[in-house]
Simulated scan of single mutants.
Amino acid sequence: MVIGGLAALFCSEVKATPVHLPPPGPRDTCPVCGMFVAPYRFWVATIAYADGEAAHFDGAKDLFKYLTDMPRWAGGRKITDIAGIGVTSYYDTRLIDAKDAIYVMGSDVLGPMGHELVPHESQDDAEEFRRDHKGKRIVRSSDITPALLAALDDGRFE
């Protein structure tokens, strides 16, 4: 039992935490691109605000566009208004904490809006996906900038 406890203590594999946020309704649209979100349940990303409102996105890429330019997209809301942010994990299709997710860029898997940040709950999952789907780059939420998102839209993954 002690050995198992030590292994868990020194294990570098940290998984993104599942989050429980409201699902999109059939009429919810992405505030960035205007697409209906519910048909793309394997790509859904959600922001839940402290006041109970939510914003839904058709992928992590549009979620991060929103987060990196809230004055443009969020109608006066601020980062401090946010209670939770989730993205759909590629392999198990459950909502996980967006800040802890690991994203693969430049793969042969496209989202509803083309090249996408494909979320994974662990580094191991991201590495496996990158190998299996010809991914070019693995990033964390802290690496995601407007310039990276613009490059992704243009099919550049450097």
Results as ranks from 00 to 15, higher is better:
residue 119 P to Q: 06
residue 105 M to R: 05
residue 31 P to Y: 06
residue 15 K to A: 14
residue 39 P to W: 08
residue 4 G to K: 04
residue 120 H to P: 01
residue 116 E to T: 10
residue 86 G to H: 10
residue 97 D to G: 07
residue 82 I to S: 07
residue 50 A to N: 07
residue 30 C to A: 12
residue 42 F to G: 13
residue 29 T to R: 15
residue 140 R to D: 00
residue 114 G to E: 10
residue 49 Y to G: 01
residue 27 R to N: 14
residue 68 T to E: 00
residue 41 R to C: 08
residue 11 C to T: 08
residue 129 F to E: 05
residue 146 P to I: 02
residue 74 A to R: 05
residue 96 I to A: 09
residue 49 Y to N: 01
residue 20 H to A: 12
residue 117 L to W: 02
residue 35 M to A: 09
residue 55 A to D: 11
residue 57 F to Q: 03
residue 17 T to E: 13
residue 120 H to E: 07
residue 45 A to S: 15
residue 84 G to Q: 07
residue 19 V to T: 10
residue 149 L to I: 13
residue 106 G to P: 09
residue 69 D to G: 03
residue 21 L to P: 02
residue 126 A to F: 12
residue 82 I to M: 10
residue 150 A to V: 02
residue 37 V to F: 10
residue 34 G to Y: 03
residue 102 I to Y: 03
residue 108 D to R: 13
residue 101 A to N: 12
residue 60 A to C: 06
residue 29 T to E: 12
residue 6 L to C: 03
residue 31 P to W: 03
residue 136 K to V: 00
residue 20 H to K: 12
residue 41 R to M: 08
residue 28 D to A: 15
residue 73 W to L: 00
residue 50 A to K: 15
residue 15 K to T: 11
residue 127 E to Q: 12
residue 122 S to N: 06
residue 81 D to V: 11
residue 112 P to K: 10
residue 68 T to S: 00
residue 148 L to V: 14
residue 100 D to G: 09
residue 137 R to Y: 05
residue 157 F to W: 05
residue 84 G to S: 03
residue 141 S to C: 10
residue 101 A to I: 10
residue 99 K to W: 04
residue 95 L to H: 04
residue 117 L to K: 07
residue 132 D to M: 09
residue 135 G to N: 09
residue 8 A to K: 07
residue 110 L to T: 11
residue 119 P to M: 12
residue 37 V to G: 06
residue 120 H to M: 11
residue 140 R to H: 15
residue 158 E to S: 15
residue 34 G to V: 05
residue 79 I to R: 15
residue 98 A to R: 10
residue 42 F to H: 13
residue 134 K to F: 04
residue 134 K to W: 04
residue 31 P to E: 03
residue 43 W to T: 07
residue 141 S to V: 09
